[in-house]
Amino acid sequence: MIFNFYIFNRNGKCLFYKEWNRPQNTLQHDDGEEKRLMFGMLYSLQELVGKMGGGDGKGALQSFTTDSYTLNFFETASGLRFVLNTDNRAGDLTAILRHIYGNIFVDLVVKHPMFEPKAGVPLQLPMFEEELEKYMKSLPCFV
């Protein structure tokens, strides 16, 4: 089951958030705080994972799993970070995040005249949302 989805830019601004299944949300009262915490955690985790792995460590973090969910992570060289939370039965979703980036994000966001790559403002592009929605719902792990 797919829970929710975030896109962050390099500076940690949340460009996009969408949730499909989220029965319990303890951070409901403060939307911004949750996104800040999410990005902050990923940032620290990436640093640590990189240092523990030696080398430059970039691209090392792909996912982590807790008792109740799996967080799937994909970072592009241009600094975009895609985060997809699912239940623990969804399997490896790297290819799906790459598809969202390469086929949906590039075509419907990057090529959209209203999108400003450096501004870091939340996306309000109905076509992108529609297409993402359609794609997510077509996935076998959606429900």
Partner: peptide
């Protein structure tokens, strides 16, 4: 260029 990079990386 600032847009092209993402298409480049992705494709």
């Amino acid at each position: 260029g600032v847009r092209l990079i993402d298409e480049f990386l992705a494709k």
